[in-house]
Amino acid sequence: MHPAYSVILFTTASGAGYGLLALLGLVGFNHGQASSVAFALVSVVIALMLITVGLLSSTFHLGHPERAWRALSQWRSSWLSREGVAALATYVPALLFAAVWSGLVDAPNWIGPLGLITATLCALTVFTTGMIYRSLRTIRAWHQPLTVPVYLVFALATGATLITAIATLFGRFQPFQVILGVTALLLAMLLKFLYWRAVDAMPPAFTMNDATGLGRIGDVSQWEVPHTSENYIQKEMGYAVARKHAARLRKLVFLLLAAAILLMLLALLAPVVSLVAVIAALSAAVVERWLFFAEARHVVTLFYGGRPV
């Protein structure tokens, strides 16, 4: 699949934002009012900014951004629509939560429920994002149980490193943040490892013989393509990343995740290092997401002589 930068940016940025926002909600749920207005506002604004930038960037890649509102209508059947609904819905409790959690609005009883609702909606949104891909039968790498967990865990891990860094900036670094971050990052490593192992282990399900149905008479190979230049289908669905290149990038993802873990641990000694850990974790997420697309092979490529998928 063509790794569109807007989609990569959207899913990683909004993922991190939802992760952060969810954690803030949980913090509120757990601890009540934030320790300072500034910390509360800055952290919520950062989360919402990441989410909003992500959402905006996703609308930029639409052919008709001005019609984006229509995407809310089909929540009964479409995961993309559900994602949109969930994403927008999250703003409501999130803003209310920010108001009460920061103390700008004095309603301490509401902090817990709003925090929980916000966190749940964040998780739901990321879940729906994951489900958009998980539900596509045309791309086997995605159509598998680990897709959604990977989306969730990357959101959590990037969110956790983010919350650590923000806390550090506000002098509220706490070791439990490191524990959360490191656990999430380790989980991300594990799930992604399992994801790739699963992908690599999948025996190809379809060949050109199957796609064309001509397998019933013999072995099919491509002779003439229907057009000279690459068309939309080939550009969008036919993107292929070299195996060697992909393998190197996979290593890079693990390296970056490992670096983030290491930096998080270092933050126990020097909290400011968590700022660097954020960069490592986000970079890991971007590379992971790029590979998520670039490595995924669509069944339609078989019509263009692609190798079995």
């Binding site: 008709h64 019609r67 596509l136 045309t138 939309y232 969008e236």
Partner: peptide, 27 residues
Amino acid sequence: DTCIGCKLCSWACPYGAREYDLAQGVM
């Protein structure tokens, strides 16, 4: 008139039957 050009349907089609019109912004 209502397509937003998100391209998702083309991803969902196994047969390559949907082509996105870059200039028109719709599928």
